[in-house]
């Protein structure tokens, strides 16, 4: 699913050179549920963003489902994100003036799925996350747990094989966090690969494997 070879990421701020990732090599199989842990500033988000094609590495090679992602341009990366990857963020990142329904539908608008198939898919996802009655509400009218469920439904819109979650339970109480993990386990059961950054060992225990990062290296 994911093959990374000596991936590095360097930030340059004037004179200062900051190596956020140092020659990371990584292999992840399909349908794995992996958590990434490590102290603050160790490079977890940076790694996740590169895996998610939101950011490009400074060096190294990265194959996503046997496809070399390193040389792709912005629009090609957009297509990869749109088709293959679903994102779940700590702060949900829903569009504030779009309803639950519209938020879930959005990723499908960028690849031209027909209106009928979009409606069917949104309905399916609303049922899966249990928000059918909330489909016409805006994010501000939903609880944190509900918002995160909208975000998960949205991440699944184009049926991606890879789910990337950066501290998905960070803004939720522990009970709601468990509910979200329940959903993740279900997603893994559907054969999806899940990478999740977390600080919480209990949350991490839902995954099969943990990658520990320290100072931009895997330990």
């Amino acid at each position: 699913m994911i093959e990374m070879e000596r991936i590095s990421k360097v930030y340059r701020m004037g004179e200062v050179r900051l190596e956020a990732l140092k020659e990371i090599s990584l292999r992840i199989e399909a349908a794995e549920f992996i958590s990434i842990m490590g102290p603050s500033g160790s490079g977890k988000s940076t790694l996740l963003n590169i895996i998610g094609c939101l950011d490009t590495p400074s060096g190294g090679s990265y194959f996503l489902e046997e496809k070399n992602v390193a040389g792709l341009g912005f629009d090609e990366l957009s297509t990869v994100r749109n088709r293959k990857i679903g994102f779940v963020f700590q702060n949900f990142n829903l569009l504030p003036y779009a309803t639950t329904y519209e938020n879930i539908e959005l990723p499908m608008l960028f690849n031209g799925r027909s209106g009928k198939r979009r409606r069917e898919r949104v309905r399916e996802l609303l049922e899966m996350v249990g928000l059918v009655e909330w489909q016409h509400h805006r994010p501000s009218e939903l609880s944190g747990g509900q918002q995160q469920r909208v975000a998960i439904a949205r991440a699944l819109a184009n049926d991606p094989s890879l789910i990337l979650a950066d501290e998905p339970t960070g803004n939720l109480d522990s009970k709601t966090g468990e509910e979200i993990m329940g959903l993740f386990v279900k997603l893994q059961g559907q054969g999806r690969t899940i990478l999740m950054v977390t600080h919480d060992t209990h949350i991490a225990s839902y995954s099969q494997r943990t990658i520990q990062l320290l100072d931009g290296r895997i330990v």
Partner: peptide, 16 residues
Amino acid sequence: TREIGIKMALGARRRH
């Protein structure tokens, strides 16, 4: 700005 970032994450191209 944030919203643009969200759309990009969801697969918006430059021309969109």
